[in-house]
Structures are given as structure tokens and as C-alpha cells.
Write a protein that binds this DNA or RNA. Structure first.
Length: 112
DNA sequence: AATGTGACATACC
DNA sequence: TGGTATGCCACAT
């Protein structure tokens, strides 16, 4: 049973729920999963996200500052920015423009 | 079992 | 104002 699926799976699920044109932070996801202090684990999960056969829009996940901290981990150094721009999100100097406004909090959005 | 790691977050100097 | 240091927790070896 149940079995609690791996923490990673939960992270992937939430990330996939991120609406297009929105972004969220590692801490927000961690908190939503109930492990607010495991923000690092969320990032760790994303690290393995590209191993998942299922699409995981990791480019929609940024750090608390709205900076594309994980862009260095993408197949291309511009893949993340490009992906975000395609979603209508402006990225300036590796930072999401108006991040605060585009921020998508799973705790609020999913709970509402 | 123990140790090392990490795409964060926060605190401190 | 920015770099350093520590906490934190789940996964990998």
C-alpha cells in the first residue's frame, strides 16, 4: 500500500500542477508536502526529474528569489529561460520578472 | 548503519 | 551588501 510514494513523486506531481505561465519556489512545494524544511530535497528531486519518463516542468520551479538557480542543470544553459519565455514569463538576468506576481503557491491554489 | 550530497532557506558577520 | 556558515531532510552509495 500505500505506501507512501517516494517524496520525489509528490514533488513531481505538484510541479506538474503548476499552471502555464506561473512559477513557484522549492520552499513552497516543500511546505505543501508538509516538509517545509526539506526545500533542498525538492531541488534534489528535480535533479532526478529529468530521469522521469513523465514530463516535469522543472523550469517552472525557481528559488525563493525567483532566480533560475537550476538553469545550469538544464540540457542547455538557455533551456530554462527559453521555456519560461515560451510560457509568457519574462526572465531578466536569470531572474523571473515580477516573480512575486507570477508566483503560484500550491498551498493556496490547490487548497482553494 | 554510516557518510556524503544537494536545482534551498535562513542567519550571521 | 555580499559572502560564509549552518540547518534541514530525503536519496545514493
Amino acid at each position: 500500500m500505500d505506501s507512501k510514494k517516494d517524496f520525489f513523486q509528490d514533488v513531481y506531481e505538484v510541479v506538474r500542477l503548476i499552471p502555464k505561465g506561473r512559477v513557484t519556489s522549492y520552499g513552497a512545494i516543500a511546505k505543501y508536502l508538509g516538509t517545509a524544511k526539506s526545500s533542498r530535497v525538492v531541488g534534489y528531486a528535480m535533479n532526478a526529474s529529468h530521469q522521469q519518463t513523465r514530463p516535469v516542468p522543472a523550469h517552472r520551479v525557481v528559488n525563493r528569489n525567483g532566480m533560475l538557480s537550476g538553469k545550469h542543470h538544464f540540457p542547455s544553459p538557455t533551456a530554462m529561460e527559453d521555456a519560461l519565455k515560451k510560457e509568457g514569463i519574462l526572465v531578466k538576468k536569470d531572474v523571473v520578472v515580477d516573480f512575486k506576481n507570477l508566483f503560484w503557491d500550491p498551498m493556496i491554489e490547490l487548497e482553494l
